[in-house]
Amino acid sequence: MTTRSYFLAGFLAAAGALAFAYYLQYAQGLDPCPLCIFQRIAMAGVGLFCLIGFAHGPGVGGRRIYSALAALSAVLGAAIAARHVWLMHLPADQVPACGPGLDYLVDVMPLAEVLSTVLRGDASCAEVKGAFLGISLPAWTGIYFLMLAFGALAGIFGRFTRGRA
């Protein structure tokens, strides 16, 4: 496999996941909670680093750097998804109260405080809005992030040729 085709596959996987998320939002009416939006940002990070790797077509050192950045984005996304799943499984009396929307938080708080507030979660994040085969969408997203992370690890430790895709 060439370096470019490897990064193209990673980009298409991330872009496909984001396209599905937007399909669920705009065609199916599943509005994302703040943690869902953060997961989308992490998925966009995976896609961006893979797209840059595809465009650059780097040698071994560059491939490892882009793969490590994609892996970091995927691991962060998996951690956010795990937090989301944890909130969904809290007893009702332990779920944090609903807070203001993400747009409002960004307008009135410093970025570090926005991150802290969103990662604490609230009742909108604890609600199961969609599931497939009895598994919530954030759990599926976490699984997908882990698959992307393992794929990125292949980019760090694997052997590739430096040809065209």
Rank of each mutant, 00 (worst) to 15 (best):
A81Y: 01
G45S: 14
V95N: 00
L69T: 02
A14T: 12
Q25N: 13
H89N: 14
L51E: 01
L30K: 14
L105N: 09
R64M: 12
V60N: 04
A15E: 13
I41Q: 05
M88P: 04
G29Q: 08
A19T: 10
F11I: 00
L48T: 08
A82E: 10
L24Q: 13
A74T: 00
A13R: 11
A71H: 01
G29N: 10
A78S: 15
G10R: 10
G16S: 03
L12A: 10
P100Q: 14
G59Q: 14
A92W: 06
A70M: 14
C33D: 15
V106F: 04
A74C: 03
A74P: 00
F20G: 06
L90M: 07
A71C: 15
P58A: 12
L18E: 13
D107Y: 10
P58F: 10
L72S: 09
I41T: 11
G77P: 01
G101S: 15
F20W: 15
A92Q: 07
V46A: 11
Q94E: 09
G101V: 10
F38A: 09
V75M: 05
G57M: 04
C98P: 11
S67F: 09
F20C: 12
L51V: 03
V85E: 01
A42S: 07
V75N: 01
C36F: 03
L30Y: 15
Y22D: 09
A78Y: 13
C33Q: 12
W86C: 02
L48I: 08
L102I: 09
A42E: 10
Y26I: 12
A21G: 06
A17C: 11
Q94L: 08
I41R: 07
L90D: 11
G53N: 05
A17R: 07
Y23V: 15
F20L: 14
P32Y: 03
G47D: 04
I65H: 01
G29L: 09
A92P: 04
G45P: 12
G47P: 01
V85N: 04
F11G: 02
A81I: 01
G29T: 08
C50I: 06
A71K: 01
A70Q: 05
G16E: 10
I52N: 01
P96N: 04
D103S: 12
L90C: 05
G16T: 05
A68Y: 02
S73R: 00
G10S: 05
F38L: 11
W86I: 02
A71G: 15
L30T: 12
D107L: 15
Q25M: 10
L72N: 04
I65A: 07
A82M: 06
R83G: 13
A15F: 14
A68T: 10
A74V: 01
